[in-house]
Design a protein around this nucleic acid. Sequence first.
DNA 1: CAGTGGTCTAGACCACTGG
DNA 2: CAGTGGTCTAGACCACTGG
Lengths: 233, 233
Amino acid sequence: MQPRFIAIKSALVDDIEHGRLAPGDQVESENQLAQRFEVSRMTARRALSELVAEGILARTQGVGTFVADSRPMSSMLTIKGIKDEILARGHDYQCRVVTREKRVATPSESRWLGVKEASPVYFTSLIHYENALPVQLENRWVNPHWAPDYLKQDFTAMTPNYYLNQVAPLTEADHVVSAVLPENDTAEKLMITPSSPCLQINRRTYSARGIVSVATLTHPGERYRLGGHLDFT
Amino acid sequence: MQPRFIAIKSALVDDIEHGRLAPGDQVESENQLAQRFEVSRMTARRALSELVAEGILARTQGVGTFVADSRPMSSMLTIKGIKDEILARGHDYQCRVVTREKRVATPSESRWLGVKEASPVYFTSLIHYENALPVQLENRWVNPHWAPDYLKQDFTAMTPNYYLNQVAPLTEADHVVSAVLPENDTAEKLMITPSSPCLQINRRTYSARGIVSVATLTHPGERYRLGGHLDFT
DNA sequence: CAGTGGTCTAGACCACTGG
DNA sequence: CAGTGGTCTAGACCACTGG
């Protein structure tokens, strides 16, 4: 059974997608929606509030609720593997497997991966080299449920990303980019000093059925940049 | 008069910022909060829901609500101004204009902006504050051709991004994200030590007719992260 | 089982906007 | 002024989790 506020949201999004509501148009008031969908005003309001939070609608007190101006910028960013990136630059690529093991999820790991606390997870730690210099330390936690044979793979031949995309095709990803100082052993693995800033990406990848893996990708700041291009037209 | 759910949110955020609640800790349940603050469960719930939406807390049905690994996070895929981002988090926003002047483009500036060497460019340097702490140093070079009145604007009222988007609507943007150590004067402006890693974004924005401006956005690593979500379906 | 979060109701009073 | 959104209450029933 679908919650009612979801049904209302869907109806409104549908109206927008089919052009029955254009940017700038006023949408029905909370009271009108409540009446039309036979729900309490609080429920109609919730539907509107969430659409406002998602940037799809905009509200002004005393005036009304309107369809917001244009478009979530959908991304042109891709999850290109580091290996492809390096090879595309015409550079030499190498990979070293540091750790490959079954672990018991810590509370925070289990929350990230969406598994029960203390359940088994697969963990790998790899270093990726560009022209013999480390450019990425990849620490990855994998939900064994979606990739039971994960630990048996030869990651020097096929990156974890590539393998996981085979067994559980990627449908979504979240990521958080931050600037950090490396832990001592991370610095050592990346052949940098502990006072060198690193660009760190925390990425969570989803297949159709759930969270497949969580990765922490740490890059020496002086050897790696992240580029992007956005087109709003 | 401050809404009650805001008071509850503030109290929880305060507990987190003062270390009375650490990442992973369970926070009071909706019922406990309702009792402690003498509000209805719906109001306590609203406070928690908003903190969850902001990524500060995480909830699991039947289990409880927990402190998430929390630093503010912004979207990589939208060019939402830092101001909107901060306000959207319900935080206090302030801005200080450090520099505002006409300059002669250096060779590298002129290359970035796509103007002739030694032509005049407009330069502004602003510091954006979230809850009185600097979160972004915005150094921006503007092509006077597309925004002749740029320097006359009151940037504490309207961010450069917003103004430029009015006079020369944004159609494209390039950006490069990197982790760097700040220059001494940058560190001072951001109120951090020169050994604190910074997340730096170099962004070039285009309107239909050419490059409008180039900006270097420098953020203290411990106060800013960049988030994104990709959907491949 | 008791406790948690998730949804929902039918009211209330308020602040704000426009005519 | 009537209508809008903003906040809030005191209940209800549900699904889910852990012990």
